[in-house]
Design a protein around this nucleic acid. Structure first.
Lengths: 342, 342
DNA sequence: CTGAAAGCGCTTACAG
DNA sequence: CTGAAAGCGCTTACAG
């Protein structure tokens, strides 16, 4: 591949001049010289070496997004939002599926530091692992002091999300909606207790109950993994001892797993039981019955996350924002029509 | 951030020696010296600068995956497969959602070239745009001659997939299965005619019909976009004039869109009409009814794609492989129970 | 407006 | 086993 040296030689100018025209920096170059350089660059199919430039700047126009799993539609949406904003700015996006494994996450962050990524955006909730958090924190501090931008889209060990939603209020509003439908006995599939988002949503459930004057019953709260398997398992666990007319879930996969298990069991939703999710992942609209859930502006979070990164890269302060959630009531919820399930 | 110069100074050795121990290259260094360098590196929290190394090698351990849209589960699965293989090897993965737009794709490839990505894997089918294909081809040729690995997971302008599936045979087998169920009038939602995969699947449909001795009727073939909207539109287009008992679709989103539209119309699936998809995207198992489809080993394609890239990077020849497809017959297909729809 | 030169942080022949 | 030096491809003060 042709380097700037060859372009300069062909154009008959110094590499300084060649650099000034091809890098589109704001520096006076005569029109004639500029044209000659541009011609030479085109003739040689010159493409600048981003690595050389990055070495100088100690930064490469790449933004990484740390997700739990890119095949989880929640994260795919966020990544897409980041990409939509990053791409026009000339940034490439790296996706890192951490599988919520502290070691994987640490190794990704280290790699990103080594690559001098301009920004790392945490889409996934922070983990509660002090040792890896310390290690990751060390790398992030080094990157930050080197000019990189770190943005959190979820609550994490060190604080709240930089661009996020009010998980607690969102969940409280769903509980309020269920209560409005007539439900008083509402179970909660909480997901893992080790995740910050999970806790915020559980807090929202409790707040929703409290505001409706309903006593919290911990037997109605089930902790499982944050996926469809967890939802199915949650239903199985609840179904013996507990008594309830609705199940609120801490995220959509949980709700979809519950829906599937309930269908297997021949329990009609929403006839016998209402089910609600959280996130409004795209598939939530096409489950059967379609899922009542809380809509999160996932792409917008990605876009805003990148916008914040750009702001930080430009030397400005990061400004925290809380994006609104919205109730999306569909067909999986209805007034309780029969006595509460035993 | 500490550089190797500082590590060398603290350890009291030359940077050459320091480099030899931290870069884990196979070069004799005395145990005592090695230990001193390692201690110094740890004390300084040294992380090598991948940009400097990349500049020298003219290559950075990054693999890019060109997809249509990362929020499309098909591509998310493939990307995850690439990541699963790339991550242990120390490679980061960049995702590029081209939206099947020739210009976006071109600009991504150019950016990737400028970044000296070690490999670019095309997960999405090639576009039929001669001009952008020429431009992209130019960049890829330059990258290849620089040692980068280019791998295709789908048929494209210049040839077949390097790691792919037999789309034609896969679709033919689905048609055969529908015929086996008793269907003779089978419509086909073909997706866009500009995509190479789309064409291969259409060819499979024709082959399946031919092998069953059924005359091809072009009025039964509808071209739309490759998404749920296209599926709904396809149903609307078919429903007036055509007569058929089953709809085979060129991919799952098309089938899911058809399912949704049919449900709106009150047409029972599979009672009145059978619907089949293609890809076996994860959600296909949880639609209602669950979708009969052709399973593609999506993650495996990603993993194998990266493995091929590594082979090429090692100077070996790329060896093409065709992975098997598998029929996944679920609840959206059944024998035709009523007369063909008018 | 133009250019010579230093330097970003590494690796790798080459010499000892 | 160890080190001095060149060089990867750029950008940017600095001088003219």
């Amino acid at each position: 591949m042709a380097s700037i040296t060859e372009v300069a030689r062909l154009a008959g100018v110094s590499i300084a001049t060649a650099s000034r025209v091809v890098s589109a920096v704001d520096y006076p170059v005569s029109a004639a010289t500029r044209a000659r350089v541009l011609d030479a660059a085109a003739a040689l199919d010159y493409v600048p070496n981003a690595l050389a430039r990055g070495l100088l700047k100690s930064q490469i126009p790449v933004v990484a997004v740390i997700v739990h799993d890119i095949t989880d539609p929640y994260f795919a949406e966020v990544v897409r939002g980041v990409e939509d904003a990053a791409s026009p700015a000339g940034y490439l996006v790296i996706t890192c599926s951490s599988e919520r494994d502290a070691e994987r996450e640490t190794s990704y962050v280290r790699l990103l530091r080594s690559m001098r990524a301009a920004s790392v955006i945490f889409a996934a909730s922070g983990l509660d692992d002090p040792e890896s958090n310390r290690e990751i924190g060390k790398h992030l501090a080094a990157m930050r002091s080197d000019g990189a931008a770190v943005v959190h889209l979820s609550p994490h060990a060190l604080g709240e999300a930089d661009v996020g939603v009010d998980n607690e209020a969102g969940m409280a509003s769903m509980i309020e909606a269920l209560v409005g439908l007539g439900h008083r006995e509402i179970a909660f599939l909480a997901g893992p207790s080790s995740l910050f988002v999970g806790r915020a949503r559980l807090a929202g459930y409790r707040r929703g109950l409290a505001e409706a004057g309903i006593t919290f019953d911990e037997r109605l709260v089930i902790h499982t993994s944050f996926d469809r398997e967890g939802g199915a398992l949650g239903v199985d666990t609840l179904l013996g001892p507990a008594r309830f007319t609705a199940i609120a879930c801490a995220n959509d996969p949980l709700a979809m797993g519950a829906l599937a298990r309930l269908a297997d069991l021949g329990i009609d939703v929403p006839g016998q039981l209402s089910v609600a999710g959280f996130d409004d992942v795209p598939v939530a609209a096409i489950t059967s019955p379609s899922l009542s859930t809380v809509r999160l502006p996932l792409r917008e979070m990605g876009r805003r996350g990148f916008a914040e990164a750009v702001r930080v890269l430009g030397g400005e302060e990061l400004v925290s924002t809380v994006l609104p959630t919205e109730l999306a009531m569909r067909d999986s919820t209805a007034p309780p029509r029969v006595a509460a399930l035993t």
